[in-house]
Each structure stands twice: as C-alpha cells, then as structure tokens.
Design a protein around this nucleic acid. Structure first.
Lengths: 333, 333
DNA sequence: TTGAAAGCGCTAACAT
DNA sequence: ATGTTAGCGCTTTCAA
C-alpha cells in the first residue's frame, strides 16, 4: 500500500537505480527521463523511506543530542543553536534528557549508537570517567557543547570560563570591594568548580584579598537558592558587599533577597552574574552579567560535528568562543 | 567490522531467528539457549541495529515532535513532559522547530513521514488549513499538544483556555475594576484570539462594562512588548487600572513599565497573568497568574499518542486538563 | 523450541 | 545514461 521506489520505476519504465538517481539528485540522468520520473513520483506521491535508505547507505542523517534537561533555559538555548545548523545541513535531531545521571548518559549514548546516528552532541555539567571512556571509543564523531572535558580528548565548544569569571570578579574588585561572595550552582559542575571558583580565588589573591571560605556558598542553580544563599550570607559577622553569581536566576534571587530586607542594589550591595539570559533585563536593577553565547555554542558545535561527519579536516577541535561583559545596573559604573 | 545478529548466531550455534527472539524477549526460548546467546551477545558487544529493525518491522519506536521554538520556555516545558513519557514507553523523540511557519510545518511533517516515525506530537499557535488537511490524512497518529484545532478533528490536549481567561478577567472585575486592559501576544494565535480575547469580552459584557477597543493591545509575546504596551496604554485619556496579560513576560513588562514611572503594583494598578512559569515568582510583586500545566500537557499528549500507536481504544480524544488561579501579589487579595 | 528463508525499501558497485 | 544485482541487518511467517 505504501508506494516504493520499485513502483515508481515500474510506472516510469525505468530501473530502480534511475529513480534512486533522480531522487538523490545524481546528475547522470537525461533531463527527459528525470522529468518522466519526477512526474510519476508526484503522481504516486512517492516519499523515500529514510529507514531503508539508512540501512542501505549506512548514514541516517540524524544526530543524537544528549543534554541534562531541555526545560532549562541554558540547554534549550544550546539546543536551538544545534537544531538550526543541523537543519541547514539536512540533519535531524534525536533529543534526550539525561537529568545529569551518569548511568542514563551511558545508556543514552548506547541508544544513540543503536539508532545509528551519524554523530552526537553531548552536554553535561560533569563528565564521569565511564562516560568519557565510552565516548572516546565511539563509532561516530562526538562534540561536547558547553561542556568541559579537562583532558581535551574530545572536541568541544565553550568559552574561556576561567578568564570570564576572573574578569567578573575583578570588576567587583575594581569597584572597591574586598568582601566578595561566590554563589555557585552545584560545585559538582566542572565549569563552576574547575573554572569559576578557581578564577574567583585567583582574582582575590592577585588583589591581595584574603579568601574567606564562608563567602563561598554552594547551592543549586535556582532563584530560591539565590535568595537562600543571600540570607545565609547575612548571618556572617561581616556580610559580603559584592556577589558573584554563577547564573542569572541565582543573581536575581540575591537581588530580591537584598531588596526584601530593604537593601538597595547597587548602592548597598553589588551583584554580577554569569549567563545573561533574557532574564537579565527582566529585573530591577537589570543585571550586569558575563554574556554567554549559548545559541552560538550550540550552532558552532553542530557545525563542527558536520565537519567530522563528512571527514573534513578541522584545525581547532577545542573551540573557544568570545564572551563579553554586559554592563547594566546591578553594578555601579 | 560491526557485529551483527548473524555473527551472534554463528558464535552461539543457533539461528538468527533464535537470537532475534532472545533480543526481543520472546518467551519461546529454552533458558539454556537464552543464556548461551546472551553470553555471546555480551562477549561480542552486540548491539541491535535499530534501523534494520525498523525496516523489517515497520516500527521505528521514534516519534516526531514539531514545535515553534524549543528555546521558548512554553515549548521546552511541553517538550520535557513529552520526552519523559516517551522514554517511559521506550520511544525516542525527533525534535524540530517550525518557527511557526506553515510551509516549514508542512515540510517537517513530510520529513517525519519519511523518517517513518510511529507518531507525531504537533504544536503550533495557529493551524492553517493546509497543515490541518495534511495531518488529517496522516499515515501515523498525531496528537496536538497545547494547540487548538477548532474543528476537533485531531486528538489534542489543552486546558479550557476560555474558562481560565474568563476567570482571570472576572477576578479583576471582582476587585472593582471597570477599566481593564487586554495585552495579548500575537492575535494570530488561535488561543489568544479565539479564547482569551473572547473570554475577556464576554466577562466585561456579563459585568455590563463597556468594551473599549483601545484597551486591547496586540503585541508580540516578549517582556519588551509588555513594557511597550503599558506605555502605549498610558497615552489614553483614561489609562486602564487593571491588566490581563497573555503570558508572564508581558505581565512583567507591564509591571516594570508601571514601576519605572513610579506606579505601585497592586496599589495603583493590578495585573494578572496567564502562564505561571517560574518567572512568576521572580518579580516583585510576584505574579498572580492562571497556572498552565505545561509539563502535564506534554506528558498527557505523549501518553495519548502511545495509546493510538498501540491501537488501544481511547475514550476521550480531546483532553482538557485542569488549570488553577495562582494567587500572589500583583493583585489585591 | 528452533531453523530456513523471504522480504522490508533502498543504495552502490558493476555492467552495458 | 541506464540497468542488474547484491546486499544493508533485522523480523516474521512457515515448517519442522
């Protein structure tokens, strides 16, 4: 009942091979027969079966995308960048949420192999040993998006988180602060623990500011966590006068935590964030923030993957995109 | 080099059929041979090829998900609900963004057919004639998620938008307002034009309040649009004292628009929203809002689709999930 | 309980 | 420029 390439061939009085050629745009077909075949295709409403094609050609034109949670803005932004470039290169996306659980990540990678994807884009806050080795022996190319592999064995697209965080903290120091809090989403995140926190410490040290361990609070990444962290920090004998937040939600939580107790931002305390999602402009004061090019990270990752999939040689496999400091009102000018 | 079912059969001294049986959990296999086969599978690291399986069985265990834009919170929330249930039933998701463009929607549906998906979840602000007829003659089941087909020809999962909007506007009227603005994202949206606006008008009429066309502003759905709309409404001789916003971003825009000119919410103006995303608690005052169960709409849609795909009979094909009015602080109690 | 064999719908040599 | 043919790796009757 479904019409196959064979039906088209019969109706058009040509061979399957010829039909295949016109469907795939092979130039070695006489215009007349091409037209004849196309007419039949249209008449029969023939639609190539991508599964059969995949089996015969060993290419599925689909790529697996594994991320912690699509409903988080951070990842959905990346996903959109990935999808746009995928579409541009005629790939389709098989999307799965890992919830950041290593067993699930492992299993999803296996599933993607089973589905015969031509490549994989992988995102995770933290890469475990197992997952890493699993990916290193992958039968298809893999690119990490917004995800750090400290061994640099896998291709990846990121920004220079360390430099960005250093700049952020330093900006606070320039404004005269010596009592600066670090409020970071889960420290199991490689980026946060490995780069943001390290840069924070280094910036303080370079400015000869003593590190106060109490000024470092590890939370989850939500708004409530930011508020909570703010409250907690107010119990110190000398509460911080400046805050470095690892994402916008936390930053907004801090700001509201302060405002709810009558403090003014940026007059009483100053806050700098690390993300610059659209939330950044949806608070009063608007957030000064390191701007992460999430869409671009996704897009460039996918572009990189297309190169691997078509076996082009790529010069730089660990790409660092530029970031910038977006100056707004949660910091004095 | 890749190990196939044939390799396993040979190594285990059984036929391909037997291997296929154990892989698919067919009970008609002697435990001893099952064990023997499983051992070989493990030893050879055999992984079934889902593409070959799909070709032979005519089922791919993948479903197409077509939505306007994953990076919008509304849709990524739905997507998460869809994915969770899909995973539960061992389906995988092929995700595509339509950007709400009918030609692209049409083309994506075709692509999904080509990919031999077992079903489709479709989301769109507005269904064009073409897209609708295309879906009606679909070879696979389709479920609309958070998407209205006024002819009710396709299965769908929604809330009763009309009742919800009526309740929201009525809440404003109860608070004594007679000068109420309607600020809605693009009126090309079936939900907004067909239900929210209609309910707004009806609620006013039922309360014998004259409709002022100037109080209705059509914008896009963003924060800036909300601010813009607020400003525009202040140019009226009698600016509205209450605002019904079709989503949280617009509502926040309105609130900030007011606050930026020294107005107090809810004392000077009151605002009610329609979404209740996590943004709702991230503003001061927190938003009073109709709570849309987006995750659930996604989840139930997928569940419904699984029923269609396994040819179960379903009683209700146009499901309406409950909503509720979340009382917070942008409205007086 | 197990095996043999015929496809599923297409691509990709290889011929012509 | 076009046709023939052998798979791709699996499921699924049908037999035994």
């Amino acid at each position: 009942m479904t019409v196959t390439i064979y039906d088209v061939a019969r109706e058009a009085n040509v061979s399957m091979a010829t039909v295949s050629r016109v469907v795939n745009g092979n130039p070695n077909v006489k215009p007349a027969t091409r037209k004849k075949v196309n007419d039949v295709i249209e008449r029969l409403e023939y639609r190539p079966n991508a599964v059969a094609r995949g089996l015969a050609s060993k290419k599925t034109t689909s790529v697996g995308v594994i991320l912690p949670d699509v409903s988080e803005n951070f990842y959905s932004e990346l996903a959109r960048g990935i999808e746009d470039i995928a579409t541009m290169y005629r790939y389709h996306i098989i999307l799965s949420n890992s919830d950041q659980r290593p067993e699930k990540e492992l299993q999803l990678i296996e599933t993607m192999y089973g589905k015969q994807v031509d490549g994989i884009i992988f995102m995770s806050e933290h890469l475990t040993e197992n997952v890493l080795t699993q990916m290193e022996k992958s039968p298809v190319p893999i690119v990490l998006a917004g995800t750090v592999d400290e061994t640099n064995k896998l291709p990846s697209v990121n920004i220079d988180y360390y430099a960005a965080a250093y700049e952020a903290v330093n900006r606070l120091i320039q404004n005269g602060h010596t009592n600066i809090a670090f409020v970071g989403g889960s420290l199991s995140s490689t980026i946060i623990r490995g780069y943001l926190l390290a840069a924070y410490k280094k910036a303080l040290q370079d400015a000869s500011i003593d590190l106060k361990e109490d000024n470092i609070v590890e939370t989850d990444a939500s708004y409530e966590d930011g508020m909570e962290a703010y409250k907690q920090l107010q119990t110190l004998s000398h509460p911080p006068t400046a805050y470095f937040a690892s994402n916008d939600e936390i930053a907004i939580g801090i700001i509201h935590g302060a405002q709810d107790t009558g403090k003014l931002v940026p007059n009483d305390i100053e806050v700098i964030s690390f993300e610059n999602s659209k939330l950044a402009r949806m608070v009063r004061p608007e957030l000064t923030s390191i701007a992460l090019p999430l869409y671009d990270i996704g897009a460039v990752s996918m572009r990189l993957l297309t190169k691997f999939m078509s076996k082009e040689t790529v010069e730089e496999t660990n790409v660092h995109l530029p970031y910038r400091l977006e100056e707004r009102d949660s910091l004095k000018k």
